[in-house]
Design a protein around this nucleic acid. Sequence first.
DNA 1: GCATTGTGTACTGTATACAATATTGATATC
DNA 2: GATATCAATATTGTATACAGTACACAATGC
Lengths: 216, 216
Amino acid sequence: MPKCIQNSLSDQVYTMLKEQILSGQLKGGMKIPEESLAEQFGVSRTPIREAIRRLSEYGLITIKPRSHAIVSIITEQEANDIAKVRVTLEQLAIDSIDDASYAENVKELSRYAADCQYAMGIGDRATVFEQDSLFHLALVRSSRNSALINICERLDAKIQQLRIAQNLPEDELSYYLSQHSQMMSLLRNGDKEACKQLLYEHITHDLTRHIAGNRT
Amino acid sequence: MPKCIQNSLSDQVYTMLKEQILSGQLKGGMKIPEESLAEQFGVSRTPIREAIRRLSEYGLITIKPRSHAIVSIITEQEANDIAKVRVTLEQLAIDSIDDASYAENVKELSRYAADCQYAMGIGDRATVFEQDSLFHLALVRSSRNSALINICERLDAKIQQLRIAQNLPEDELSYYLSQHSQMMSLLRNGDKEACKQLLYEHITHDLTRHIAGNRT
DNA sequence: GCATTGTGTACTGTATACAATATTGATATC
DNA sequence: GATATCAATATTGTATACAGTACACAATGC
């Protein structure tokens, strides 16, 4: 799903900065002065400012007015809060899916589920998380509810940050991924209630047990 | 609930621009060139740009890259989509409210409900809508779920736009407002299921029947 | 008359310069 | 030694200037 043509410097900086935060290269609590970023990216402060402001709307950066911006720190409480909202929203998505949109999206969903499994097999966690995000976003898109899609896409950045902070052990992550295809077969059989229940477990299962502490 | 100290020009422009859009002074589809806004507000293009970009994140403005920005147009489909999401989110809020947080927020909720009724009595629709928003946001805040609160606050701008576009007839609006206190008494009695059901009716009841057409 | 191309204008995107404020560290005071 | 005060510095907030692109409209060819 191409989000933007990415021709403007603002967009490019936005994408790269987001990647640096989600990859852990920029850690929670770190100061990010505009000028040093401008030097790093070889652009002026203007596109940097725009990217920072956009990312702050997504909760990945916290701006202290007239002072400085830091990479947001995710707390255990916040993780729980997000999980609850996420379950609710994705359950709404499931409720909204009809046969036609399921048929239209089933191929995409299977591919993401398979790619997740494959990446897990070769121990590539970054790809696992990426494909997992894509799976859930595709599920949400199947709802065809534009407002829902919007909110979930915007929440996705925070969820990615969360997934990384969670640092789930291999066996749990693997189990968790196997639920993707289970959810799909439940959907195919039209058993939405079971699917929603499984989704709940999929998302909230021991969510915060493994949250890694954020250091400043 | 103070959102921001509002000392920066960007914030001020943001607030005023938002008001102009929600008051209908700036109509859906209208072009909003940075320079003319800059002149109007007596500031440079920089704070204007930042305000426009922020409002575009909230869906109130649509930016056509390298071309121009317009005031977003709300469609009937979008209105329905938002309503569904809104019901879901506010129902989650109701589920999350416990006795303590209800006790803490009941005064605020009653005040907003009462102010709504009063404003309705004197035919001040702008205040009705404003207080209605505050009522629902206070309800959501009672959940103490920061992620939920965030999303609902961000969705609020779009909901306000929607309420205005709806242009509900007086009797319906009046009936709709009376449900506020009903919801509160259900909450007080701990009957969350009934409260959620009423909320559903409150929000989706004939939602799009009166949507006013947007002109370019 | 209609499509196509070219040109001018208007607007956005970005860089830079300046102003205003917060932070830091040193100094003074208790 | 701890706290308060102040100056120097670093960083943000805003204005302005310039470059590049999209759009409108006229000119040209069919």
